[in-house]
């Protein structure tokens, strides 16, 4: 009996979004026209990108295994960014301005601008800037950063359905890419993109963050909502075909299982290796469900994912636009 497998063709294509620009290196993501990683039946002009997360102030609650690779540069964004790119091979960097949160230091928007500038001067790669995520402060900080760093093609993380106007306006005015975050909900993801389009945001400058549940803490919800978003996008929905960014590292290392030492849970094995595995087992399914940018914390997790993706996309350049 003959065995005939027909390749699956889709009407839709994922948008191509270019990060960086100006004096900065540019990287493009998206552009695929088949289910994620289905290289055997579609074309993927750009490979998924691997980012490392750095913070403005020393992170409060990262387990020891996650801070160990950053010894000596914790809370020093420029030095950490250099290490991330030059030492650990990150495609790009996410600077989390956690210290601007009212409850975690309440650093000012001016402090944030200084940190972002320092990172931009330190490394040539595109930069994701993550705000404190606290209502008005999120807007104050990210709007100032957007204004002060016009033309750098930053990725602003993030706007949500309840509060998107300020960031939509500055993203358009200063030429940045905007991350649209939705709470593991395809309808809200779509609605937010419609709202952004109405607010004159070019959807070729938008990424979706579907909100990541870490391994053991809702990964399956994110996984399935991403698959559904991707099916809709490939089916031709122009409001859901943005590339996707996932904060895998943050969610993985939040898990109790990623940090508890072996002497407390002997059956769980070595905590350092366990933490890195937790991050890999969070990130790889997300790539397989459609993440074009994965933000990680541990360089070993990045190296392991890199090895697999290099094999996958051997003939694809590393996203350089």
């Amino acid at each position: 009996m003959a065995l005939e497998l027909k390749p699956k063709k889709w009407p839709g294509t994922i948008r191509t979004v270019t990060l960086g620009g100006g004096r900065r290196r540019t990287l493009a993501v998206g552009g695929g026209n088949a289910l994620p990683l289905h290289a055997f039946e579609g074309s993927f002009p750009h490979r998924p990108l691997l980012a490392l997360e750095i913070t403005d102030t020393a992170p409060g609650r990262w387990p020891a295994a996650a801070t160990e690779p950053w010894q000596g540069v914790l809370g020093q964004p420029a030095a950490a960014a250099r290490r991330a790119v030059e030492g650990y091979g990150a495609d790009l960097v996410m600077l989390h301005l956690a210290g601007t949160h009212p409850d975690r230091g309440n650093r000012s928007p001016d402090d944030a601008v200084a940190d972002v500038r320092a990172v931009l001067d330190a490394v040539p790669v595109p930069l994701i800037v993550r705000g404190p995520g606290a209502g008005r402060k999120q807007n104050d900080v990210l709007a100032r950063v957007a204004e002060a760093c016009g033309g750098e093609g930053l990725v602003l993380h993030s706007a949500c359905q309840e509060d998107y106007r300020t960031l939509a306006a500055v993203a358009v005015a200063y030429g940045h890419v905007l991350v649209a975050e939705s709470p593991i909900d395809m309808n809200i993801a779509k609605q937010l993109n419609i709202l952004l389009a109405d607010a004159s945001v070019d959807l070729n400058r938008v990424l979706i963050d579907p909100l990541t549940g870490g391994l053991g803490y809702g990964l399956e919800y994110t996984y399935s909502v991403m698959q559904r978003i991707r099916l809709a996008a490939l089916g031709g929905d122009p409001m859901l075909n943005a590339p996707v960014v996932c904060l895998a590292g943050e969610e993985a290392w939040k898990a109790k299982e990623a940090g508890v030492p072996r002497h407390k849970e002997p059956l769980w094995g070595d905590e350092r290796q366990r933490g890195i595995n937790w991050e890999v087992a969070t990130a790889l399914p997300l790539v397989e469900a459609g993440a074009e940018i994965v933000v990680l914390r541990h360089p070993e997790a990045l190296a392991r994912l890199r090895r697999q993706l290099d094999g996958w996309f051997a003939e694809t350049n590393r996203g350089v636009a």
Partner: peptide
């Protein structure tokens, strides 16, 4: 060891 089993079981 558990550092591999636990994430795989959880996944």
């Amino acid at each position: 060891g558990g550092e591999n089993w636990l994430p795989l079981w959880t996944l």
